[in-house]
Computed example of a mutant assay.
Amino acid sequence: MIEVEHLSKLYGSTSAIADVTFSVEPGEILGFLGPNGAGKTTTMRILSGYLPATSGTAKVAGFEVHEDSMAVRQRIGYLPESPPLYPDMTVEGYLNFVAQIKGVNAGDRPQRIQSALTRCNLLEKRKTIIRKLSKGFRQRVGIAQAIVHDPPVIILDEPTVGLDPRQIIEVRNLIKNLAGDHTVILSTHILPEVSMTCSRVAIINHGQVVATNTPESLMTQLMGSSGYELEVEGEFAAIQQCLQAVSGVKTIEPMLTDLLPQNRLKIKVVSESETELGSELATALVSHHLKLYEMRRVQASLETVFLQLTTEETPVENVDEVEPSDAAIEGGTPNENADL
C-alpha cells in the first residue's frame, strides 16, 4: 500500500532524511519511531504531498507522490502534529466542510460524517463549538477529519502529544480500530505508543531508517540473548568466578543499588542467544555455598532496542539533529510545528 525507496530531503546543505526506505502492507499499522529531530515529520509531510522530496520515490496505493500528487491526496487522511481545526465551527459543520473540500459527493456526506463521528466517539459533541472542546476531543476531531472521506491510507503525526493518560488510551484504542480497514502510519517518539498500537515498527535516527520489523522480532534480533538479575550474598569476584564456569554465560555485571543489606549484591547475567540458564545458575551458586536470595528473568524491551539503535553513531554526512522548522522555510511563526 505504501512503498518508500531511497527517499532524501535536503534543506540547503543540511540533510533532514537520507536514503529512507520502508514499506507498509494493506491494513497494517506501522509505528514510525524516532527521537525528536530524527526526520519523522519530514517523511510524513513528503508522503502527504506537503513537501517535495529531493530524491527518491514514494508511492501510495500505487500512485507516485510527486507525479500523481492529487491522486495520492485523495487516498490519504493526514493528521499533522497540530490538528488543522477551525475553532469557531461546530464539530459536525467542520467535518461537513472538510468532506466538501476532499471531494465527497453531496449524497454521501451525511453517511461519511456520521461514520467518522461514530468511530471517533464524537456523536455527543457533534453540535459543540470546537474551541470549547478539551484537547483530547480536539485530537479526535483531527482524526475524524482524516478519515471522513474513507481513505485507504491514514498518516498520523504524534497523535497523542499533550494528552492526559486517559485520553491517550482512548486515542490508542481508536487508532487500533482503524487497522484492517485502513493502512496506518503512526509517527511518534513515545515507546508505549508503538508497543501497544502497532503491528510493525520502523526506527529512524539522524534521518536514516536503522531497523524495520515487528517489536518482538527487533527485540530478539538485536538483543539476541536472555538476561537474569540475581541477588546473591558474597564477594563479586567469587560470584563471577562461579558463574563464568556455567556454559552459555555471555556477560556478568554488578548492578548499582543502595537498597540491599550488607554483603548482598545485585548481579546481571546475560546468556547466549536462546539459552535458558536459570537452573544452571542457581545450581552453580548453591554448590559453591553462595546464598541466592532472588532470581528474575529479564526480557529485552523495546526501550532497550530503541536506545541501542538511537545512541550509536550513524554515518550520515551533513546531518543536523534538529531539522529546519516551517518558520525557517516558509516564514511562519517561530514556534509553529518547530519540531520536525
Rank of each mutant, 00 (worst) to 15 (best):
G142E: 01
A144Q: 13
A144R: 11
Q145V: 09
Q145W: 02
A146H: 09
V148K: 11
V148Y: 05
H149C: 14
I154V: 15
L156D: 09
L156V: 08
L156C: 11
D157E: 10
E158V: 12
E158Y: 03
T160R: 02
T160S: 10
V161L: 15
V161W: 08
V161I: 14
G162A: 02
L163I: 11
L163S: 12
L163H: 12
L163F: 11
P165A: 09
P165M: 13
R166Q: 15
I169W: 02
E170V: 13
E170H: 11
E170Q: 14
V171P: 07
V171E: 07
R172D: 02
R172W: 08
R172C: 02
R172S: 04
L174E: 06
L174H: 08
I175H: 00
I175E: 06
K176A: 10
K176W: 04
N177V: 00
L178S: 08
L178R: 02
L178A: 07
A179I: 11
A179E: 09
A179L: 05
G180F: 06
D181Q: 12
H182V: 05
T183I: 13
V184G: 00
I185E: 02
L186V: 03
L186E: 04
L186Y: 14
L186P: 02
S187R: 08
S187W: 01
H189G: 05
H189E: 12
H189A: 12
L191F: 07
P192T: 13
P192N: 01
P192I: 04
E193I: 11
V194H: 06
V194W: 01
S195C: 03
S195I: 13
S195N: 12
C198I: 06
S199N: 14
S199I: 00
R200E: 11
V201C: 08
A202R: 10
N205T: 05
N205W: 08
H206G: 01
G207P: 02
G207M: 05
Q208F: 01
Q208C: 09
V210W: 01
A211P: 03
A211F: 06
A211E: 15
N213C: 01
N213I: 00
T214D: 10
T214E: 11
T214N: 07
E216V: 07
E216T: 10
L218Y: 05
T220A: 15
Q221R: 14
Q221Y: 07
Q221C: 01
L222M: 12
L222T: 04
M223R: 07
G224W: 00
G224V: 02
S225H: 14
S226K: 15
G227H: 11
G227M: 13
E231L: 15
V232D: 04
E233I: 02
E235Y: 00
E235I: 01
I239N: 00
Q240F: 00
Q241A: 14
C242I: 03
A245D: 03
V246Y: 02
V246A: 04
V246E: 02
S247W: 00
S247R: 08
V249G: 02
V249L: 03
V249K: 06
K250D: 13
K250P: 01
K250I: 05
T251E: 03
T251M: 04
I252M: 08
T257C: 06
T257K: 03
L259A: 15
L259D: 15
L259V: 05
L260V: 10
L260K: 04
P261Y: 06
P261E: 08
Q262H: 14
Q262L: 13
Q262M: 08
N263H: 15
N263T: 11
R264N: 07
K266N: 00
V270N: 07
S271N: 12
E272H: 13
E274M: 08
